[in-house]
């Protein structure tokens, strides 16, 4: 049967992977979200060519697995284009790309959810297009997208475990190594799952709280 006592002594080894997991998650989320805003704005604006490029970007990264991007960037890019990136950059970049696609769609939904009258009112007041977006529409958008963004962060934290395939010593990679050293994969991976649970659970609760809050206040009509 399961023998957790055989691996529990190695638990701290797994915990040492937490900073890297959180670092990957945080970096990919920030880069992806910052990139997502202009992508969403351009996508909505219907500028010839540029909007289509934004749409293609979104669709490509929404329809292809990040694992493929990681493997491709890490193993194929040096051969094809002579670009060598370190493992952290590859994983951050790949996850940031798919996050940017996800978040762009979330931003787009949030921007379009702001009533038309808000644009009209600010336009008649003389605000330029970017001022309407920045001072009037986006603050309302942010309030609407807090909960879905939080969900994106949760799934991103789990996806950061893909870094294991190119030997970045985050939680999952440490788990694999430990599993093969101890011949106790079930026990080790259960501990790994427990660590992910502890990390993501507060975010799940936060997301639920944000959802409740945004359904309450701040609507004028």
């Amino acid at each position: 049967m399961f023998r957790f006592e055989a691996v529990i002594g190695d638990f701290p080894v797994l915990l040492l992977g937490i900073p890297l997991t959180l670092g990957l998650t945080f970096a990919a989320f920030v880069v992806g979200t910052v990139a997502a805003l202009p992508i969403a704005v351009v996508r909505i604006a219907r500028i010839p060519v540029v909007s289509q490029v934004a749409l293609a970007w979104i669709e490509f990264f929404r329809t292809t697995p990040p694992l493929m991007h990681i493997v491709w960037a890490y193993y194929a890019l040096p051969v094809v284009a002579d670009i060598k990136l370190d493992a952290f950059t590859v994983v951050t970049g790949a996850l940031a790309c798919s996050t940017s696609a996800q978040m762009a769609e979330i931003f787009r939904g949030g921007i379009l959810a702001v009533p038309r009258g808000q644009w009209d009112a600010s336009q008649v007041l003389g605000l330029a297009h970017w001022q309407r977006l920045w001072w009037v529409v986006l603050p309302q958008t942010l309030r609407l997208i807090l909960a879905p963004s939080c969900n994106t962060l949760v799934s991103l934290l789990k996806q950061s475990s893909l870094a294991a395939v190119i030997a970045l010593p985050e939680i999952m990679n440490r788990g694999w190594i430990l599993a093969s050293e101890t011949f106790r994969p079930i026990e080790v991976l259960t501990l790994v799952a427990f660590i992910y649970f502890v990390l993501t659970w507060p975010l799940v609760l936060l997301s639920a709280a944000l959802e409740r809050q945004s359904s309450l206040a701040f609507r004028s009509d």
Binding site: G117, P139, Q140, S220
Partner: peptide
């Protein structure tokens, strides 16, 4: 283009701003 002011059926006040901020936004930014 600032010669015209308009008031709408659905008010269209900015819900994330206070009354004061609603009024001062355009004079300050424009």
């Amino acid at each position: 283009g600032h010669d015209i002011g308009m008031v709408f059926q659905s008010f269209n006040l900015f819900p994330h701003l206070t009354v004061m901020e609603n009024i001062t936004l355009a004079p300050r930014r424009v």
